[in-house]
Nucleic acid binder design. Structure first.
Lengths: 251, 251
DNA sequence: GACCCTCGTTTGGTACTACCATTGATAAGA
DNA sequence: TCTTATCAATGGTAGTACCAAACGAGGGTC
């Protein structure tokens, strides 16, 4: 491929930004597709007519954005990659951390999303998926009934349940948002799981929700979801006196 | 400030990543606050015991994340900055572009958000805000009734209306998501505004929605919102025959 | 013929140097 | 006092040299 026909020497103030923008534009315009290998740093250096440092700074930004992955060694280089939901989630998580978003707001938002997801999932998922969801909630409940439950594993199951339900909506944006929320709430959820009462009621709630999703009864499913978040809110307020409330949420 | 006590020489595989992580951690831990100036590149170079290139690559990533802004010249340097919602929106927009998300999914998601926002806004906004929202919708409708409406300005008013409503929820996450959605849908909305029938009905819908929000009648407000998205969906399907449907959505 | 080792090439990763461009402060001069 | 020139700090760029990892080709060994 003739890279010289794609890239032109940077002219804007910051060369590395211009380079990054040009390469990003080339990827967005599908001049490079996922899996493709960009020219090596030295080739790009020649194509753009800049120093190698400029190229490296630009590539680092693209890597951080999740647009490329970099391998070294022979046959290495920068490879175009599909942007994953993780990048969005990370950006969101960083925003949430630094802007000290209150847990109440996160919960409130997540409840809205959960309700939307539930309605769509009831309408779109097939019987198999609904059955599998129900079975997964039963497994979750069973795992918690053991004498010494592996909390980390159970928490992971809960996480997986949410993603599974989101997938049933057939809407990738809801999947993405759910994924992002889990990162934002993860340390918080994890902390609450220490409370035996909370986790048992959560699991029971999950099963009931899945049950009414499987039966196609949206009103009842939504009722259990709302109840879950009411309970979560209550647990939160209960712990509010402790000084480490805020820091407990974000690691 | 003694930077040597904060930063340690990178040890992980990629030095620049390690440096970026350490600086990011320092910012997240509030060792540096918004407005503060980080040490100069040459000072950081000394503190981390690396080459200046490594520092620059790390700073570029932080800049891209929106954590710092960089000024050159005397008294220049890297200054810590509040992470804006824009960074999240941009990441989301990039994800949407490269994953070719269908417009139907975006609309569906946005309707869920709009319904949630409306319910919360009715419950939390004060009378002044509700009245101002209603007045703004009336202005929008009036602007469209002119013989030769300035479509760009009107579209901007529509955008502003959405943000205003989101603000009325008192939940910054909903504001953020609304902001991000607008970026993702912007070119699409803009294209639809060319349709006179669509924009007139949209404006009318907005006024009705605002009216019932002001009156505190959630059911009717939600009905108008759903109707709006039904109409949007219909417009979309109508144009579906045209080959440029997909590209029209994303620039 | 199949397997393994070695060595060389490619490519990213790091260090260092030198110099430029911008910017703000400070000193000199009108 | 105001203006102007100078200087120093700092990011921006170029270039070089070398290191480290990874892969391939070739040759050797079993």
């Amino acid at each position: 491929m003739n890279v010289d026909s794609i890239f032109t020497p940077p002219t804007a103030g910051r060369a590395s930004e211009d380079v990054a923008l040009q390469i990003e534009a080339a990827i967005v315009d599908e001049k490079f597709n996922p899996g493709d290998r960009l020219p090596s740093e030295r080739e790009l250096q020649a194509a753009f007519g800049t120093g190698r440092g400029v190229i490296r700074e630009a590539l680092h930004v693209l890597k951080q954005k999740g647009l490329i992955e970099v391998k070294k060694g022979a046959r290495g280089g920068s490879f175009v990659r599909k942007v994953k939901a993780t990048e969005v989630s990370d950006a969101l998580a960083l925003f949430l951390k630094l802007n000290e978003i209150q847990a109440e707001h996160l919960i409130e938002f997540r409840e809205s999303i959960d309700r939307a997801i539930t309605l769509l999932a009831i309408g779109r998922a097939d019987e198999d998926e609904k059955r599998q969801l129900l079975e997964a909630t039963e497994k979750l409940e069973a795992a918690l009934k053991e004498s010494n439950p592996d909390l980390v594993a159970v928490w992971e199951m809960d996480r997986e349940l949410n993603l599974r339900l989101a997938r049933m909506t057939r809407n990738p944006i809801l999947e993405l948002i759910m994924h992002a929320m889990q990162i934002g709430l993860s340390s918080y959820d994890h902390a609450l799981y220490d409370d035996e009462d909370y986790r048992n009621r959560t699991a029971g709630n999950w099963r009931k929700t899945a049950l009414y999703i499987a039966r196609g009864e949206p009103t009842k499913a939504l009722a259990y979801i709302s109840y879950h978040y009411l309970m979560l809110q209550a647990c939160l307020e209960e712990k509010n006196g402790a000084p480490e409330t805020k820091s407990a949420i974000f690691e």
